[in-house]
Design a protein around this nucleic acid. Structure first.
Lengths: 331, 331
DNA sequence: GTGAAAGCGCTAACAC
DNA sequence: GTGTTAGCGCTTTCAC
């Protein structure tokens, strides 16, 4: 592979001039610039970004650390982030933390070691441990989908509490009386807020929360199935379940189907996050839809902002959810 | 952030010795090594991988270029690749080509510019255009899920033809007589092979292929819906459809549900690729299951092999599929 | 406006 | 064994 020196030699200019042409810096004689461009073309020269990054001390790459690559909610975010990144000249590298703080730390280290320009992360825990080193190093950070409790970082989330409230209220309005809730790991802000929304809806309806009807699972399919099994095995099982994410909803539907329990006659279901499969299952699933693409776009824009103004006050954007009523919640 | 010189100074050794300790190269006096490690610890020193990569001329990062981040089949591969990479000391950066050759090229350029150690790619087209530069530069490449027609690169695929053959034969064995096929873009080897498997099954059953019953779509949901609409609008519509991937199958199911066409009474369905939703839809979906995790693992292992022996003969591994019979294909 | 030269932080010859 | 030194390829002062 040719270097900037090869180009310089061929164009009969200095490497500095080649660099100026390639980066649109300073004024370069038009004819010279033309010669440089011709030489670049001829040699098929491509700047070595490693050398460039070393010199510049920062790469034009962002890390997007998501907590579960198999969760369609997170993969959908990616596009939004990518589109903005691309338009600003950044590449995005996707990292899967698998809801494990250890893996999250590993990727943060990589981002640091590779001098990446910024990090967008859906933290697996609302404690700030993993991103501490980034903040210390001055790397712009935005959390997406979830927040961190005590860290001064920008964040983009959806109105989890309100979405959960609407979902639960909708079930109550449709005559369900013993509404259960399966939420995610309490170390995530989404799980906490969705649970809070569920509680507030019950409160507004004048119904006491039965602790038996609240289950915490792991945001994964198997966890949703298991929580459903526990709920339905109760002496007084629920007549409806609000499930805190799409993977757990699939688990719930699977278990109920296997157990021969009919929806919504026996139990009503509302899931969080609307995915294509929601309208294919039978009965069609009522869900709380999230603006995932917009979530990604917004996070990326905030990252750009942050990089431009590192000392601007921290802010958090909340995007609305939308209740999509189908058949699993009406009888 | 501290550099290797800071560590050297604090440990009262040369930078070279620090480097040796950190990379387990050469023999270093035990007591000295201990001092180095203590200094590293004390300063919280982390090697700058950009500088390291520049010097070594290769980064310990692989690019995994997948053709559709929203297709669960591809995101499932990721784990297999990651697990192997991690065990060999590599990081994986995920790139989404969106079935567009242009984006694919862009990521190939990034891989090249960043001096990545290897590339695993599911090519959006079976022409080799995008990876040419990688081969020229001597970067190890493995294609995954799909092959390239004329490029000397290792590949891992599943037995597409056989899987499709079994799926089609299964429909025929269950009394379906007009079996249609919706396959993917003809520029992908998977689509071509799945179509070939469909044809071979018809041939073996002594049934002529009706060109009207063969549709090519884009491996996406909307494309599957549209192809299904076309098929069902035929003067003589099919009584069963073999659908070439999971996203198009969702599209097909969606359209059929909206049209009030019952499965399997009116049409039987078999989809390619088994996903969690397959057993949740009603009727439960018969599919051709693929060993996705294994696909990822194998590709990663082949990449390691390739890097170790760049001149070894090219090889292609084919993994088996498995027909999972449920209710959408039996009547 | 252009070039010479230094230096980003690391590793690998090469001396010792 | 260990240290000195050169240099990976680029960008950016600083002279001119």
């Amino acid at each position: 592979m040719s270097t900037i020196y090869d180009v310089a030699r061929l164009a009969d200019v200095s490497p500095a001039t080649v660099s100026r042409v390639l980066n649109d810096r300073g004024d370069v004689n038009a004819e010279m610039a033309q010669r440089v461009r011709a030489s670049v073309e001829m040699l098929g020269y491509r700047p070595n970004s490693v050398a460039r990054n070393l010199r510049r001390k920062v790469a034009s790459v962002w890390a997007l650390i998501i907590s579960d690559i198999e969760n369609p909610h997170f993969t959908a975010l990616v596009r939004g982030v990518e589109d903005v990144a691309r338009s600003k000249g950044y590449s995005v590298v996707l990292c899967n933390s698998d809801e494990e703080l250890e893996k999250e730390r590993g990727y943060v280290d990589v981002a640091l070691d590779e001098r990446m320009a910024g990090v967008i992360i859906s933290p697996s825990s609302d404690k700030d441990s993993a991103i501490g080193p980034l903040l210390k190093a001055g790397v712009p950070v935005v959390t997406i989908d979830r927040r961190l409790r005590r860290s001064p970082v920008n964040s983009v989330v959806v109105a989890n509490k309100q979405g959960a409230n609407e979902a639960t209220a909708h079930l109550l309005a449709n005559g369900f009386r013993r509404v259960a809730c399966i939420t995610g790991p309490t170390r995530t802000t989404t799980a906490v807020q969705r649970l809070a929304g569920y509680r507030s809806a019950l409160f507004e309806a004048g119904i006491a929360v039965d602790p038996q009807l609240v289950r915490t699972a792991d945001y994964k399919e198997a966890g949703g199935a298991e929580a459903t099994r526990e709920l339905m095995s109760l002496p007084e099982p629920p007549d409806a379940i609000f499930v805190g994410n799409s993977l757990m909803t699939m688990g719930a539907l699977g278990w109920l189907a296997d157990a021969g329990i009919s929806i919504p006659d026996h139990v009503g279901i509302v899931g969080f996050d609307d995915l294509p499969y929601a309208r294919l299952v039978s009965p069609r699933l009522t869900t709380v839809a999230q603006p995932t693409y917009e979530l990604g776009r917004t996070a990326a824009q905030m990252l750009v902002e942050r990089a431009a103004a590192p000392d601007a006050p921290v802010r958090s954007v909340t995007l609305p959810t939308r209740l999509v009523v189908r058949d699993s919640s009406r009888r």
